[in-house]
Amino acid sequence: MVELSNEDVRKVASLARLKLSDAEIEHFAQQLGGVLQYVHVLDELDVSDIEPMAHAVDISNVLRDDETTPSLPREDALANAPKTDGRYFLVPQILENA
């Protein structure tokens, strides 16, 4: 049985910038614990003789030539911005003491 503590959930939530209530933390600890437990089934396999893979598909060297293609017009790039001045994406102030 894989246990996922409330503390683990709180940390993951804070890394993902999610604010969860205590009830939600309780709830997700159980749900995510269930997911982990399901994945845990894989531990039954003995993989000690198998070389780790860097990628799920066994291909390499997928490269493109260094050629430019048209970019999006600025208004399209900014179309979904929560806030913009027409030139930049605007976000709440970042550094407090820069």
């Binding site: 806030k83 001045d85 605007l90 102030q93 970042i94």
Partner: peptide
């Protein structure tokens, strides 16, 4: 404390 501008 005005907004920061982001240029991508």
């Amino acid at each position: 404390g005005g907004d920061s501008q982001v240029d991508l």
